[in-house]
């Protein structure tokens, strides 16, 4: 009897913890969405629904530009970080090489360095040594250096128990390395790669401290938010954040429906 209670009590208790975590994580986001509809963003009570901020967004090019810049920086950073970290983690995990330890240390090392320092040092190096003005490219690169170490760790965490004999088996059957990767390794490690992609995208999309110093005159969402603090955050920023969250929410609904209908499984092999 005690065991049966135990069997459902554990998941319920743990599930409650997860639920509470979601509440904690999403409360500020919900507050932002709520406030984006308020007439007054500093004192949004009582609630007078209002879509003025959203209508303003259509005309405010600064915000649109900032959104696209942030997306661009996020995507490029994520692509570079994911590719480099996937390659690096495979090299380190699969091959016995005398430099393996050193390579791992170098690939993780950007994590030792505070974001702020990466931003500042890249700025110093670009300006004083290379003589480059601020631009999106150096912001992407500085973010990608940082993102790569996160991607690398995420890949390591998952691939540490990957069975590399699968790859060897494919090679024995005559597949070339590229085909082996595409048809054996990738299908098995893609959740890790997706994880690396998503995390590095998110880190770069909303990065303030690295991008801030390297962008020159290019606005992004976080730099806009930081810049408008002096006179208070504008309702349009809340509205834009709410729209981004709306898209994310829709994406989740779509993924859920696809999974529910069994169209995609995302590597899940159970029933």
């Amino acid at each position: 009897m005690a065991r049966r209670v135990d069997r459902w009590l554990t998941p319920v208790a743990l599930g409650t913890m997860l639920g509470l975590l979601y509440v904690f994580l999403f409360a500020p986001v919900i507050y932002l969405v709520y406030t984006s509809f308020a007439r007054d963003t500093t004192w949004p009570f009582p609630w007078n629904p209002n879509v003025k901020a959203y209508l303003n967004l259509i005309n405010l090019r600064a915000y649109q530009e900032a959104l696209w810049n942030s997306l661009g920086i996020g995507l490029w950073t994520a692509l570079i970080s994911m590719a480099l970290s996937a390659m690096g983690s495979i090299a380190v995990l699969k091959y016995r090489h005398r430099w393996r330890g050193w390579f791992s240390i170098v690939l993780i090392s950007p994590m030792f360095v505070a974001e702020l320092l990466i931003g500042i040092s890249t700025l110093i190096f670009n300006r004083k040594v290379l003589g480059l003005p601020g631009n999106v490219g150096s912001a992407v690169i500085a973010n990608a250096v940082h993102g790569m170490s996160f991607g690398f760790l995420i890949m390591l965490a998952q691939l540490v128990r990957y069975d590399w004999r699968l790859d060897d088996a494919a090679m024995v059957f005559g597949a070339n390395p590229w085909r082996t990767f595409w048809h054996v390794t990738a299908p098995n490690i893609w959740p890790a790669m997706l994880g690396a992609f998503v995390i590095t995208f998110l880190l770069a999309f909303n990065n303030l401290e690295i991008s801030f110093y390297n962008l020159g005159a290019v606005p992004t969402l976080p730099s806009l938010a930081w810049g408008s603090l002096r006179y208070g955050l504008e309702a349009e920023l809340f509205a834009l954040a709410a729209l981004v969250n709306g898209v994310v929410f829709l994406a989740f609904v779509v993924i859920y429906v696809l999974m529910r209908l069994g169209i995609v499984r995302f590597g899940y092999r159970g029933i």
Binding site: N59, L60, A62, W68, G72, W76, G216, Y231, E234
Partner: peptide
């Protein structure tokens, strides 16, 4: 699509007025 704007910006033909300013003076 996402990278379009800043690729375009980098090679923008039209003149750009780049301003370092306080946010409250940006009257749309």
């Amino acid at each position: 699509k996402a990278t379009g704007p800043f690729v375009r910006d980098a090679h923008a033909a039209e003149l750009e007025l780049r301003v370092l300013m306080w946010a409250n003076y940006n009257v749309e």
